[in-house]
Design a protein around this nucleic acid. Structure first.
Length: 502
DNA sequence: CGGCATACG
DNA sequence: CGTAT
DNA sequence: GCCG
């Protein structure tokens, strides 16, 4: 996936034992093999390699007869090749090598034969293979488990509570988030979106997933992600995610895309030019204004962490850091105009311990005061020595003087106690815009997406962070004054900000 | 097989 | 193309 | 990558 060599199965003939492999997975395997230049044969004796999910040698021998000279390999080998983007050695995936003595087989044969009779159709728990065991007890016993009745099986995340840290399925969520990020840096936002929806499901699911039959009933988890989860239940990990974490290209792309002013497409294009370090990026000829700033402030906004985790991570603020900055701003703004109303939003409001920035809505009961508010706030804080750089500014002055969207400004704010420049996002809202700004800027991103999709598809309304509208032309504003009122009109349940972490 | 959130610089 | 939730 |  991260390297370019296709056709890594070129001219490889493969005999696939389809037994016990989920239907979707069979399609995926056949598709992958032919896509990569290999081909499926129907006779094991003409195959270079035999693929199976089965573990019992006795069972396997039923499908390959007396053919004992061919390597028999777990289908996970194919997954490994796909994630590596290359044909890798199958030594680690051999179920039976070509050298092995057939005698060892017959010993296990009898006890396993009997089990096979029960295995055939069944929901009974199957014996565990050595290659599938791990230190943790992961149980995918294949039982037909009903979904937990407390779980709302909807494709709209905004209809069910999602905590910041999942009580269950935490490791699985972590692994899927790795794949989500990999899809993002590879500019596959639709795939990333699917992973995000699946992650949101697992974060809100009220117990650990224990069976792959349970998974498939959940809206948002289909065959591919379902298979990843199934594999996780067997092995305790997801090979693709483990691979991504080893992949230097992935980490470099994440690093580049973490520069302010550099998105996934630019990160990819720079990588293709051969850039590998921040220094390389600084030498790029046509840097935009934003990118120049982003590179200049990179060490402030970012920090190298322990090489065990991803080698670079955002220099995040504790809640105390955020509060320190918030109190300074509040003091200065109140001094400027006591009528101002300040409301921290974003991840901080959702309860995050570590925050990449501070998002702050500033409002004022007097609509006349609002248009000049941002300038005054910026000026005061700049003169106070706090604001060191302006990163981005959206003005909202229309000819008629009517503000139809939110004025906002992102700045680099010098935190006194640490002397680190922190990103602060100011959002200006009139009183009539305040409620929607609150909903719109509290997030999470996925919560916003689902709320907006729900509003449009189920209620024929359009929600934006400056207001709720009818989905007509022209759009008609539906006045709202509180968060709860917006939820009521949309018919979505009230969720505490801490439960909007999808 | 189209749609996937919405807005602004 | 980039920014934000 | 998943759904309607």
């Amino acid at each position: 996936m991260f390297s370019e060599n296709l056709h890594f199965f070129e001219k490889l003939s493969i005999f696939l034992i389809e037994t016990k492999i989920p239907h979707e997975k069979i399609k995926f395997l056949k598709n992958t093999i032919s896509l990569k230049g290999g081909f499926i044969v129907t006779n094991p004796s003409t195959a270079d390699v035999i693929l199976t999910i089965l573990k019992s040698p006795a069972r396997i021998s039923r499908y390959i007869g007396s053919e004992t000279r061919k390597p028999i390999v777990s289908i996970e080998w194919v997954d490994k090749c796909v994630s590596k983007g290359a044909r890798i050695e199958f030594v680690d995936y051999l179920i039976r090598g070509i050298e092995e003595d057939a005698m060892d087989w017959t010993t296990v044969e009898e006890e396993e034969e009997d089990q096979d009779l029960f295995d055939e159709d069944s929901n009974s728990s199957s014996s565990r293979s050595p290659i599938y065991t791990s230190e943790n007890e992961h149980s995918d016993d294949g039982r037909d488990v009903d979904l937990d009745p407390r779980f709302l099986n909807t494709s709209y995340e905004c209809l069910r509570p999602t905590p910041l840290k999942p009580k269950f399925n935490a490791k699985l969520v972590e692994l899927l988030e790795v794949i989500e990020r990999a899809r993002e840096v590879n500019d596959q936002w639709r795939n990333a979106l699917s992973y995000r929806r699946a992650i949101a499901v697992l974060k809100s699911y009220p117990r650990d997933i224990i069976s792959h039959k349970e998974i498939k009933k959940i809206r948002g988890i289909g065959s591919k992600i379902g298979y990843q989860i199934e594999s996780y239940l067997r092995t305790g990990t997801i090979t693709e995610a483990e691979h991504i974490l080893q992949d230097k290209r992935f980490h470099t792309l994440e690093l580049f895309a973490s520069i302010f002013g550099v998105g996934f497409k630019t990160a990819l294009s720079w990588y293709r030019k051969g850039y590998r370090t921040i220094e390389d990026c600084k030498n790029h000829p046509n840097l935009t204004k934003a990118q120049q700033l982003g590179l200049q402030l990179f060490d402030d906004l970012r920090e190298k962490t322990l090489p065990q985790n991803s080698p670079f991570s955002k220099r995040r603020m504790s809640r105390e850091d955020v509060e320190e900055i918030y109190n300074i701003i509040k003091e200065n703004v109140k001094k400027l105009d006591p009528g101002c109303v300040l409301q921290p939003v974003g991840g901080y409001r959702r309860g995050k311990e570590l925050n990449g920035d501070l998002d702050l809505i500033i409002s004022h009961p007097d609509e006349e005061r609002v248009p000049s508010l941002l300038n005054d706030v910026i000026t005061t804080l700049t003169e106070g020595g706090y604001i060191k750089n302006l990163l981005y500014r959206a003005r909202s002055e229309s000819r008629t003087g009517i503000i139809d969207h939110l004025e906002k400004c992102f700045v680099a704010f010098l935190q006194p106690s640490t002397q680190i420049k922190r990103q602060v996002d100011f959002i200006i809202a009139t009183q009539s815009q305040f409620a929607s700004a609150l909903v719109g800027w509290t997030g999470s991103r996925q919560y916003e997406r689902s709320l907006r999709r729900y509003a449009k598809r189920e209620k024929k309304m359009v929600f934006a962070s400056h207001g709720l509208f009818t989905n007509t032309k022209p759009r008609i504003l539906i006045p709202t004054s509180t968060e709860r009122e917006i939820f009521d009109i949309l018919g979505v349940p009230w969720l505490e900000p801490e439960m909007r972490n999808c």
